[in-house]
């Protein structure tokens, strides 16, 4: 948090992906509209006290944790994966999905606890996956990938995957069957802990406005 912008508030939003458009629409309904170019990382808004920061959804908890951004919108799954301490002020009700364990339909495995010890699990969420299987008491090797996780069981890279699923269509397409839910996720309004204290009135006002507008 740089001292020269102590009176201002930086709001981090995903610069692409499933949460960007609903997040922008929600902010617009709250009277906060970006004034810069669409692809600009940092832009002013119609609210003179708020700037928008457009970065990857996965990086938003990092910007918020360190106080570079005061507020942010990102998925609960992403916050859990980073493990960083931020305030989760509101469930914004969009971007709903489940983080599920899925296996090949032909595998015969019907629940996560049936996954054999030492199996490989491919995921974009290695920390959440490890915590889930640790709690379950199943030892697995986590393979971290940056996308196209669904293909790994068919290629023999992994026995199971842990990935987000909202309609189940992608799993179906890749002949995968969901066998367990790791967590439910949706878009959250997150806040830096110190910003919450030092910019309390503004943060509270925005939180209440967004809560009132959420589906």
């Amino acid at each position: 948090m740089s001292p020269d912008r102590q009176g201002r508030l930086i709001f981090a939003l995903p610069n692409k992906g499933r949460m960007r458009d609903p997040a922008l629409r929600l902010l617009e309904s709250a009277g906060i509209r970006g004034l810069g170019e669409e692809r600009a990382y940092l832009s002013k808004t119609t609210d003179p006290e708020i700037d928008l920061l457009s970065v990857r959804a996965a990086d938003i908890p990092v910007y918020v944790y360190y106080g570079i951004a005061d507020l942010g919108i990102t998925g609960r799954d992403i916050v859990a994966e980073t493990g960083l301490e931020v305030y989760e002020l509101a469930d914004l009700g969009f971007g709903c999905c489940d983080l599920v364990v899925a296996v090949s339909r032909e595998s015969g495995i019907r629940s996560p606890s049936e996954i054999p010890h030492g199996s490989k699990v491919a995921t974009e969420f290695p920390n959440v996956t490890k915590a889930y299987f640790d709690e379950l008491g199943v030892q697995v090797e986590t393979i971290t990938l940056k996308g196209a996780v669904e293909i790994t069981p068919r290629l023999g890279l992994a026995t199971a995957i842990v990935d987000i699923s909202s309609t189940g269509a992608t799993l179906e397409k890749n002949r995968l069957a969901p066998i367990g839910r790791v967590m439910s996720s949706s878009a959250r309004l997150i806040c830096n802990k110190i910003s919450y204290k030092t910019k309390y009135d503004k943060v509270e006002a925005i939180t209440n406005k967004l809560k009132g507008l959420s589906p």
């Binding site: 001292p3 106080g67 570079i68 802990k193 110190i194």
Partner: peptide, 9 residues
């Protein structure tokens, strides 16, 4: 303990 100049306690 916190100060507005930092994002961390």
């Amino acid at each position: 303990i916190f100060t507005p100049a930092l994002g961390l306690p």
